[in-house]
Design a protein around this nucleic acid. Sequence first.
DNA 1: TTTCGTTATTGACCGCGGTCATTTTTATAA
DNA 2: TTATAAAAATGACCGCGGTCAATAACGAAA
Lengths: 197, 197
Amino acid sequence: MTRAPQKRRLETRSKLLQVAAAIVQEHGYSGLRVEDVVARAGVAKGTLFSHFKDKDGLLAVLIGEEVTRLLDGMEAGGTPPDVAALNARLAPHLDYVAQDRVIFDLLLRYSGTTAAEPDEVVAASFIRQVAMLTGWLQTLQAAGKVRKDQPPELLAEGIQGFLNHVLGVWFCAEHENDASPADALEPYLRAWLLPPA
Amino acid sequence: MTRAPQKRRLETRSKLLQVAAAIVQEHGYSGLRVEDVVARAGVAKGTLFSHFKDKDGLLAVLIGEEVTRLLDGMEAGGTPPDVAALNARLAPHLDYVAQDRVIFDLLLRYSGTTAAEPDEVVAASFIRQVAMLTGWLQTLQAAGKVRKDQPPELLAEGIQGFLNHVLGVWFCAEHENDASPADALEPYLRAWLLPPA
DNA sequence: TTTCGTTATTGACCGCGGTCATTTTTATAA
DNA sequence: TTATAAAAATGACCGCGGTCAATAACGAAA
């Protein structure tokens, strides 16, 4: 039976998160250094690691919050009317992840989480994402906008695969071309989801 | 105009690679430490980094060679007769990558390479893989075993996406279940490639 | 208030990847 | 041979994430 954390601890934790968010704002996720965080938070290094398993654990909270926010935005409009609209709905998420390889790497590390440890923010957001997609696909199948010969769960997880694929390619290419990775996603989505003509 | 490397340099390089391969044999890719390599090779640390950009550069050579070997095996049998056979043909590659997250991470970092820097072993193997898949798919399309409404290049790159997706999930799950990741791949491949019934 | 077990914080220390000014070795020309 | 410039190798040094025994702060009971 673990006790409730003391007030001081909660304050330290939120201070660390607040400082970390500020540094990310200034220098990006890849510019975040543990020593900077603890220095600006006025705390010893060991303290940070008593609050978060490791640097990734800290990043996971920050990134998880952002992803959750993006999911809220995606869900807001209800089921998109067709595949093109679905593609557009996913664009903000792609643009966010595409901004920094650190985000991509971290999300990928949790990307397979279908259950277990729902306390983790990132894991929870993945579960939510796949649930959201599955729901949409069910509706689209009923409307005849999406192929019906495969279960919506498989289609949903396939979409996650394509998201990662497109992002992986994105980070390899030198993108002077300022297009969004969502553009690269569309042909895959069409081929994956559209019913045979 | 850069000169040809001296004999001594080539010997040092191959010694480093040989020692690194031995350590991987003993402790796995994730057990490879730069300091161990240089110690056993009887060389200073800086020498290693004059031969390879960083630790990943060294690993890339080792892993690239192995992937190339696997590709040789895959190509040996010619075009697989159908989707199920194609899935089986990909199994050795999946099993190899699934053995250590380090392999997966490294390959992913190069996974989008469609051209450029063909001197890198890993990049070259990716180009070769997609070319091989594209050729197979063309043949299978002609034989009516695979959907014809999409260009074989797109189908091939989609397969690469599914390979990575399946592996990502693989590394998240605790696989007491000793099944191969190829089992997880099959439903995706069927849904992605099979012509509408 | 004092005591005392628990919780929270501390910071010196470590492992390990990576750098670079310096030194050694090699190949070539005088 | 000897001089010399380029190539190769060296190892002390650094940055940064992460550890852990020691210490301080807290809160409930006496």
